[in-house]
Design a protein around this nucleic acid. Structure first.
Lengths: 338, 338
DNA sequence: AATTCCTTTGAAAAGCTTTTCGTGCACATT
DNA sequence: AATGTGCACGAAAAGCTTTTCAAAGGAATT
């Protein structure tokens, strides 16, 4: 059995209150008793029980993190940022991986609520009405990460996806490409899908390449999907010389496809990714991409959540962090294929 | 403020005990009261406070997971296994990322102890004496994952690293390679370092290739290290035609180096990795590797920890799960380099 | 009709800590 | 010497739930 404050009190020959004071306001206890108590604490390996403490303080110094797919390397960076910020602000974090399954999501929400976490970080997914109702009911502070909601008044931290996609495509155009394709998440995805497609469209329109607007193939969240999407895309539009993908994993699937078909990157085909995951520097060729400040997003989200919990004022409700174009070797000037 | 059991009791016009009974032993309450209570629970959105519960039951249904590097994709698979098993057994998990920093490790240990987690899963790192003392003092059940300790009596789940390395090298030998190199973790790493090097040695000795035994370059945990290690290795031993690396990340660094130097894989150089991370199927060329059953290791570790917590009997203390040789396209028959 | 037994319920304790309140004592002040 | 001030410390309440114990009431048995 673990020792309790009572055990310490008995051993040190003082009351429970005195032991508590030694830990929380040491100066209010005379020296010789204080030392006795500290000795007893050491001897018994006493550590205060966080549950009892949480019950009194009505807070647990714990944050819940909801993630759709922990195997996606994108989140590793976000989590690191969250972790470092949590550590700095005195929280620990509890990670819940939903696998994009609504049942799991709600089961985890209930769990976090029962555990009385001080706040929740919700990443990437769209905020559905029934989910919003749930968090409203729980009254737990919540910050959206890499997603936002225009419908509800929820604080969020993300990049400007539309602008980022625009920049990626504009860069391809600046290299001279005139037939550009896209491998995109489904447009029903209001975060990583539609806005990036809109950015793609805007860049094309701006440079009078409207013809390309329909050169899109859709994929789910895996390399394999992107591989086959690339296949479909090139079969339908064989003139394409550059592809904008909405994730680095997609880009890797595309690189894989090109390699197998003997299409050289970047000589015959430029490929640009999105996210700048750690692997992106080690693909062959190294991947040009749009960097999301994942670490900072995670870090900032925790700071924002902390402000919310403490009731401190915070900057804008919906916060947008800057993205960055990273040019490596998977993109190059336009040149006729074959 | 969140509603408490008392609020429910008042609203339903019964005592606290009755409300508790409705939740934990519904049949012991007469129907009309039960229904009133259920109504009140719904109306007030009442959810029992896990802290108070934990205080009584002396358990929190939470497991702590200690991970050295969450950005390493290897752990994503392990975590998924842990997650699924936890869900099945009624636990939630709390992930702590130590970044291989001892201070962080101890700070997290203390935190998990205060939070009164029911058990701890400790991955990958060697069990140092002062760490062992700490967990002994806490008396929290613990299972080692992807690591073990021969010195201490700690339950563990991992593969047989020596045998796995042996199999990888033997496979290279079977392809006809006679000058084989290795990119290894430091030999001070008692888990992923030394045993795999011993497997490398054993295979070479068995096939009378002792000369290769010293063809090793060491790297830390990142692609970059492996890139430079490959450079050093080939400068020193230019005859090498096959390289065994102790992680897929290393292998990717090596592939990157070969690509840059114009050395074709697998025609001029075979490369075999270790772990079979998700990315391994999408490198160029696709990576041959030793698959660790990461998901199963995570899953099994939680089952084992659960048995320990519940005091149920469990199979052997140190458990070894089977690895598997995965042949893709980064390995091929020996052929002279240029 | 009296006793026993069972069902249903509420009061209270326990689990561990923090904090408020009040007491007792030492010292200072007049 | 008597009153006042302040410090150190212990008792007890509070935080929320579960569970034990006891009581009350009704049904069943003799």
């Amino acid at each position: 059995m673990k020792s309790t404050i009572r055990d310490v009190a008995v051993m040190a020959g003082v009351s429970i209150s005195t032991v508590s004071r030694v830990m929380n306001a040491p100066n209010s206890v005379v020296k010789h008793k204080r030392e006795k108590v500290l000795e007893a604490i050491k001897a018994l390996q006493y550590k205060p029980n966080g549950l009892a403490r949480g019950l009194i303080y009505k807070k647990t110094n714990t944050l819940g993190v909801i993630i759709p797919d922990i195997q996606n390397p994108y989140y590793a960076g976000v989590i690191r940022g969250m972790e470092d910020a949590s550590k700095a602000l005195g929280y620990s974090i509890m990670i819940c991986n939903t696998d994009r399954d609504e049942k799991r999501l709600f089961s985890y929400m209930q769990n976090l609520n029962e555990k009385r976490v001080d706040g929740i970080l919700y990443t990437s997914d769209v905020v559905y009405p029934d989910f919003y109702e749930e968090i409203e009911a729980y009254r737990i502070p919540l910050v959206l990460v890499a997603t936002h909601s225009l419908e509800y008044e929820l604080p969020s931290v993300k990049i400007n996806d539309e602008a980022a996609a625009y920049d990626a495509v504009k860069y391809l155009i600046s290299l001279g490409h005139t037939s550009i394709g896209m491998i995109s998440f489904e447009l029903t995805d209001e975060i990583a899908g539609l806005p990036r497609y809109e950015g793609f469209q805007r860049a094309l329109r701006e440079y009078e390449l409207e013809a390309c607007v329909q050169q899109v193939a859709f994929a789910k969240h895996w390399h394999d999907d992107a591989y086959y999407a690339a296949e479909r895309l090139l079969q339908q539009y064989p003139d394409i010389t550059a592809i904008f993908t909405t994730s680095d994993e997609f880009a890797m699937g595309v690189l894989s496809y090109m390699h197998e078909k003997g299409i050289r990157v970047p000589e015959q085909m430029s490929v640009i990714g999105f996210d700048n995951i750690r692997m992106a520097q080690f693909t062959i060729p190294k991947l040009s991409t749009i960097a999301q400040p994942v670490y900072n997003m995670g870090y900032r989200a925790v700071e924002k959540l902390n402000a919310l919990i403490k009731g401190e004022p915070d900057s804008t409700l919906r916060e947008y962090l800057p993205h960055e174009l990273i040019v490596r070797s998977s993109t190059g000037p336009q040149a006729a294929r074959s």
